[in-house]
Computed example of a mutant assay.
Amino acid sequence: MRIYHLATVSDWERAQEDGEYTTSTRGVSLEQEGFIHASRADQWEGVRDRYYADVEEPLVLLEIDTGLLDVQWVEEPPAPGVDETYPHIYGPLRPSAVVAVTPVRPR
């Protein structure tokens, strides 16, 4: 299965140097949140529009092959009372699990 994560170019470049991606979401680390936020193909544009619309730094969409993850991932609601589920990655994302990187523009 493929899941997606929006990243700033600088965070993605740092992950490639460090060997692991540890940004949960914009301005929040994996250590702070406990997981990395991800989305399905039908969700990432809404996430971009809601949370990244005012970002001036270039963004990339990371396409992640869940079969290549070496940590657990789970589909779950992002907050209590929310019905829609999103993929959450419970550990650092290794760049080797990212099968495509596509530049995207904020809206």
Rank of each mutant, 00 (worst) to 15 (best):
D49F: 03
L69N: 08
V9G: 05
I3M: 08
E13I: 05
R107P: 15
L59W: 12
V104L: 05
D49C: 01
W73C: 00
E57T: 13
I89P: 06
R26D: 12
V101N: 06
E84I: 02
V71N: 13
Y4L: 06
P80F: 04
I36A: 06
E31K: 11
E31W: 05
E63F: 00
P58C: 08
E20T: 11
R14G: 04
V99L: 06
I36R: 02
E45P: 08
D54H: 14
I64N: 04
Y90H: 15
T102W: 07
I36K: 07
R105L: 03
P58G: 10
S29M: 10
V98S: 06
V101H: 05
V28D: 08
S96E: 13
R107N: 12
W44I: 05
A97M: 02
T22V: 10
P106D: 10
R105G: 07
A100L: 06
V71C: 14
R14C: 05
E63H: 02
P87S: 07
G34R: 10
P58W: 03
E33H: 14
G67Q: 12
A15G: 09
V28H: 14
G27F: 13
E33Q: 15
L93N: 05
T66M: 00
G67H: 13
L62V: 02
Y52I: 08
L62P: 00
T102P: 05
I89A: 10
A79I: 06
P106A: 15
T66E: 00
F35I: 01
R107E: 12
E57A: 15
P106H: 13
M1K: 09
G27T: 10
V28M: 13
G27Y: 11
V101E: 09
L59S: 14
S10Y: 11
